[in-house]
């Protein structure tokens, strides 16, 4: 009976029904466990929230929480600005690093498997509990100090230049002051940058694998050099992924629990300025992230080459 009725439905309708059925879990979950709390949290940020054992009550206060977060709280605006500056500094470095690392790892050499495993380790080992503990770690600092001393006396790999030497070298190259500062602070961040590039490297690596080898063969027959191949084939073919990676890096940077602003909001939620203000802070933060993402994605995606 049911079989008969089903077969009378058009292919289109059947497809639509199946589509809705398959995605139903997410739709229900999204409405109940995302959209609903999302709206609630907006309400919370506009009111005073009191929790008792019987439930919670909301008293409408308008924009007071936002006013508190922005103008009365001394820490928040400063942290917001600092996070933004830090992100502007780190995301380009992460991007450049993961791009070249993926190109390196895509080449044929002995020990490639080992290198890939090592490069991917940080993704697995960056639990927030570990990051949290490491921020208060003396031993790494202690070993760092003693190794840096050792390296400075022997000139080992990794610290070929001391900070002062690097600065004077870059100044000697007549680079602008701001660029020198950027490179120097960036080079001090190297460990953090390498550790937060794991997923990005994987995404680029997957992209490199999907470029058809025939493109390179043709280019070679036409007499293109490796340099030309890189700029004419590899770079444009990877450009859609650059957008993906920028978006991923920005989100990752903003939501990682070791981010001081995230930490600050959480500490305010339970104690400190209270729920309402903490929600207002989260909302301001979210709007900030969203604007930022739209702006970057909009600016960059114009230059992207899409092969459809």
């Amino acid at each position: 009976m049911s079989r008969k009725r089903r077969s009378r439905l058009s292919l289109r309708t059947r497809e639509a029904i199946n589509g809705h059925l398959f995605t139903l879990p997410f739709v229900i979950g999204f409405i109940l466990m995302f959209l609903f709390p999302f709206i609630q949290s907006m309400m919370f940020s506009l009111s005073k929230l009191e929790i008792s054992s019987q439930g919670y009550t909301l008293t409408w206060t308008g924009l007071e929480n936002y006013h508190n977060a922005l103008f009365i709280n001394a820490e928040y605006p400063r942290l917001l600005l600092e996070t933004a500056v830090q992100m502007l500094r780190d995301v380009p470095l992460i991007l450049v690093f993961s791009f070249f690392a993926s190109i390196l790892l895509n080449q044929q050499f002995k020990g490639r498997l080992f290198a890939r495993v090592v490069f991917f380790l940080p993704v697995i080992l960056s639990a927030d509990i570990i990051l949290r503990m490491e921020s208060a770690d003396y031993i790494s600092a202690f070993l760092d100090a003693s190794l840096a001393e050792e390296a400075a006396s022997q000139g080992t790999l990794g610290t070929i230049f001391s900070r002062g030497q690097l600065v004077s070298l870059l100044m000697y190259m007549k680079l602008p002051q701001q660029l020198v500062t950027y490179i120097v602070t960036g080079s001090e961040q190297i460990a953090t940058i390498i550790r937060s590039s794991g997923v990005q490297i994987l995404i680029f690596l997957a992209g490199l694998q999907s470029i058809s080898p025939s493109l390179f063969e043709v280019a070679k027959i036409e007499g293109a050099t490796g340099w030309e191949c890189f700029w004419m084939i590899t770079f444009p073919m990877l450009s859609p992924l650059i957008v993906t990676n920028i978006v991923y890096s920005i989100i990752d940077f903003f939501t990682i629990p070791s981010n001081p602003l995230v930490d600050f909001i959480e500490s305010n939620m339970f104690g400190g300025a209270g729920y309402g203000v903490a929600m207002a802070m989260s909302w301001l933060y979210f709007v900030f992230i969203a604007l930022f993402l739209l702006l970057t994605a909009g600016l960059i995606s114009r230059r992207v080459v899409y092969m459809e």
Partner: peptide, 19 residues
């Protein structure tokens, strides 16, 4: 689905907690 990725978890964690 992509949107759920962009929203920081701090925004919905408190309402979810209460729910």
């Amino acid at each position: 689905a992509i949107f759920t990725l962009i929203v920081p978890p701090q925004i919905i964690i408190l309402p979810l907690y209460l729910n």
